[in-house]
Design a protein around this nucleic acid. Sequence first.
RNA 1: GUGGGCGUAGCUCAGCUGGUAGAGCACUCGGUUGUGGUCCGAGAUGUCGCGGGUUCGAGCCCCGUCGCUCACCCCA
Length: 418
Amino acid sequence: MAKFQAPKGVSEYFPDRSLYFEYVRNTLIDSARTSGYKLIELPVFEDTELFTRGVGESTDVVSKEMYTFEDRGGRSITLRPEGTAGVMRSVIEHNLDRGQLPVKVWYSGAFFRAERPQAGRYRQFYQVGIEAIGLNDPEIDVEVIAIAERAFKTLGLKNYQLEITSLGDVDTRQRYSKDLRAFISTLDLDEATVARAELNPLRLFDDKREEIKSAMASAPILLDYLSPESAAHFERVQNGLRALNIDFIVNNRMVRGLDYYTETAFEFSHRDLGAQSGIGGGGRYDGLMEQLGGQSLSGIGFGIGVDRTVLACEAEGVALPNSYFLDLFIVPLSPEAKASALALAEQLRGEGLSVDIAYGDRSLKGGMKAADKSGARFSVVLGDDELASSNLTLKDMRTGEGEAVTIASLGAHLRSAR
RNA sequence: GUGGGCGUAGCUCAGCUGGUAGAGCACUCGGUUGUGGUCCGAGAUGUCGCGGGUUCGAGCCCCGUCGCUCACCCCA
């Protein structure tokens, strides 16, 4: 009988690494929740056309990385490759944009792209994202960036960098794109590169070959084409970031992979990761809602890669907080004691403490070993003496020291040590 | 999609010019009749990724395939 394996290129999190994943994801979510964003829980599959129209047919994500299939009713369905299009669809469908603006939502879940797997790149990957929809207010841009920044800081990350730019409005982009294409046509390029430039001329700014880099050094720069309104918007965003002491650099050659971005665009990258160093990114999108059949409102959001943020935390040696470990591990010495241990554990669990027990009628030594492995802060042995007297020895697993406590005061002791 | 490296015990890996499998760690028990992490002893564990070929004989050679991994590309 052949053993089953996970499909190619998916990321899985199981103990104990899953605790780490959970911590990172929760920290990202908390940053959004504390800023007034509310959960939006959406399907992982959507009408294929939502993505071809929303993300853009010319993007690699849509043209060659989507998991698309026909459902039983003959509809073309696609596993979501990103989060923004689905959020916009739901906002439009349920008229969330008819109330007070901006609509502020966060989401967390799995996304799918049929790429060749690599360090930090998976076919099923996890993102936490937020969207603030309905107002073109530069201070919202600042808030969105600050939420990502604060999450990374809370995790304790240091070796990352924020880059920002402005892509201008739709007209500006078209004017610029024309000039950039004209410039590129003067270069002597191979066929594949010309084809890439035709899809999106900005891509050439990302090329890793030295000869292309130097050739592009004299290319026209988008920031020089900005309208007075766009320039003023971008200026306010930068001032806002400075006011919050958020470090950033303006990267006037930044390339974003999705077609819908306009005005402010940003990216967080981490130094200790491999080729896939982007841990999060996002930007403003002016035309997206209208493109998807809604009213013409602007929005801004980001997607943070949970998998890559986990890798970044591991690279920097970020430690799990105490609350992710057990408060107490009970080692019962007999079947009778085990029944009492379970009753005690359930009582403490009901008080919000995390407690586990040595099952399986193990020896004292085996039970203590299990207590050690569990990572619990304290352990306690439950035998005939303890049950008779109600007096316990609460052992601090870090120092090895024991303290005499009564069963009644056990909960209070554990809480005070948190 | 293109290219490089690699698949041997739960994990990390060794295995000479082909002779039929090993170490460390981890695990279980014991040394210590009621206290883990150190030390000592004992024990359990493999269709050597899968399929085919060459050979008297394949973990080792050849072909295919699946997977992992890194890079290109792309992006979270």
